[in-house]
């Protein structure tokens, strides 16, 4: 079981390593969206500091949505998704492995870039720490819930836009708790409450989402 899970993850990591172009696109998208805000709003540090948590978090959800449509679509097109579903191992592990791989490939780089963006937005050091922590807890949620949307819209016309429509409302709690943690830190009330709620939402997504993605994959492959 664990072997299967690790094989799914290793396979996606290797494929991503062979196609670095796609990977870089998503990272630059994140940086660019965030960098556009000061240009649109103005450079006052106080204002930027106020909007930084929300801007970074919204950009993170958009960046994850950019890469999600291809989570299963490539494997669907070349037939390897069929083969993986015909494995004796349960499909829920496949769904979990794909979501974990998506987070490793597209989520972790966001954590690494986020401090730089925090500096751009004049965030103090401890707020940057909370921002990274909130993204560390929150981006896996984006991958887990996003996998459900990717599985549901597999092979549909306009699947990418549809995926956005389906999944963005589900991202709301992650966005609120994630950006709220940094806000609370800036307001001096401490980020613990928000971070624990975010953690609880993460655990719930980890338990529920892979089952629904697996069921959705079976439905979409019929």
């Amino acid at each position: 079981m664990l072997g299967f899970l690790l094989t799914v993850i290793r396979r996606d990591l290797l494929l991503a390593a062979r196609r670095r172009g796609d990977w870089l696109t998503a990272q630059f998208f994140f940086v660019m969206v965030v960098s556009l805000f000061p240009l649109g709003i103005g450079p006052e540090p106080e204002l930027l500091k106020r909007i930084a948590p929300g801007v970074v978090w919204v950009a993170a959800t958009l960046a994850s949505l950019l890469s999600l449509p291809r989570l299963f679509a490539d494997d669907h097109r070349d037939g390897s998704l069929e083969q993986m579903l015909l494995s004796p191992e349960p499909a829920v592990l496949l769904a979990l492995g794909k979501a974990v791989a998506h987070w490793l490939i597209y989520g972790i780089p966001l954590l690494i870039v986020a401090p730089v963006l925090g500096i751009q937005f004049a965030l103090p050091a401890e707020a940057i720490g909370v921002l990274v922590l909130s993204l560390a807890l929150g981006t896996p949620i984006l991958s887990l819930l996003g996998a459900v949307g990717a599985a549901l819209t597999l092979g549909l016309r306009g699947g990418g836009v549809l995926l956005t429509l389906l999944i963005l409302p589900l991202y709301v709690p992650a966005l609120i708790f994630g950006a709220g943690a940094v806000d609370a830190m800036l307001a001096g009330t401490g980020a613990e409450a928000n971070l624990s709620l975010l953690g609880a939402f993460f655990v719930l997504s980890l338990i529920v989402a892979p089952w629904i993605s697996a069921a959705a994959l079976r439905v979409s492959m019929e």
Partner: peptide
Amino acid sequence: HRDMAYLGHANGIKEDL
């Protein structure tokens, strides 16, 4: 599924591998 192997229209081959 342990006893069965399927070859469909698509080959199930990853182009980058």
